[in-house]
Amino acid sequence: MPVSSRWPQTALAGIALFVMAAVALHLLRPELDPVHSQMSLYLIGPWGPLLQAAYVALSAAMVGLAWDARRSAPPASRSAAPLLMFVLGGVCLSITAYAWMDLPGVDASMEGLLHGITAQGAFLFTTTGLVLQALRLRHDPRWRRQARWLLPWAVACFGAIWVLALWRELPRGLAQKVVIASIVCWLAAMSLHMRRLARRG
């Protein structure tokens, strides 16, 4: 089936909203150290609702993108697995936005536990979705050239979350943001190519 321009455009809008909100929060919250402060800290306090909305927009963007990729794929490359991973990742990311993390020095809470579980789920499900989606794209003639670099990029994102989880000495804020940027850029690259395919008809 032909690719629709509506979903790639919507995905790019959601991605752009997330990027602008993340950059703006770093300027609006100078009291937070960008190297050591995780993104979750920017959800708490002034301007937190802006980043919460951006998380939800990013969740909707990647689910819509995955749905349209499956809808427009030829039967040989069509699979519900990437879509399922992106849906689970989007749900986890949206919950993460509204379940605050436990601040340092504060007793552990159920909300903090939920935040931690869903944050890890968002990373794991989304990067798994990247890998599965890139694998399916190899079977679509319209994507074979792009799949050559989208697949290793997706695998690198998947590996990066395990480095982030296991290498505790890394500066948490900076390392996490690098991983997030890699994932968001992958989604943007896929959205841009889908938009090109839609314009070609």
Rank of each mutant, 00 (worst) to 15 (best):
M110A: 04
L84P: 03
A69K: 07
R148K: 11
F86E: 01
D140P: 02
M101A: 14
A66V: 06
A99D: 12
A81W: 04
V131Q: 08
L113S: 13
F158V: 06
H139I: 04
A181M: 04
A22T: 15
P30S: 10
E111G: 10
W100F: 13
Q133G: 14
D107T: 06
W100C: 01
P152E: 15
Y42K: 13
V23C: 05
L164T: 08
G14P: 13
R70T: 01
R168K: 13
S72H: 04
W167D: 13
G105M: 05
I117T: 11
P82K: 04
F125K: 05
Q176P: 01
M1H: 08
A54W: 01
S4F: 01
L32P: 14
M110F: 14
D33M: 00
P82H: 09
Q133F: 04
A13T: 09
W162N: 04
Y55P: 05
I161E: 00
A66T: 11
Q52V: 07
L12K: 06
V91Y: 02
L88I: 05
H115R: 13
M1T: 11
P2A: 02
V184Y: 02
G129M: 07
L51D: 01
G64D: 03
M85G: 04
C185S: 05
F18I: 10
A81F: 02
W47V: 00
A81I: 11
I161Y: 00
P75D: 01
W143F: 13
L32R: 12
L130D: 15
G48V: 07
G112Q: 14
S5W: 05
L164P: 11
R136N: 10
L124D: 05
V184Q: 03
R172A: 03
W143S: 05
Q38N: 08
A198Y: 05
A13C: 02
Y55G: 08
L113N: 14
A188E: 09
L41F: 14
F123R: 15
R199W: 11
I117A: 12
Q38G: 08
T96G: 07
G89N: 11
Q120L: 07
A134T: 13
A156F: 06
R195P: 07
P104Y: 11
R6N: 02
E31Y: 09
L27H: 15
F18K: 15
R200F: 00
M1E: 12
Q120F: 09
I183W: 13
E169M: 08
F125H: 12
R71Y: 00
I95R: 14
R144I: 03
L93N: 08
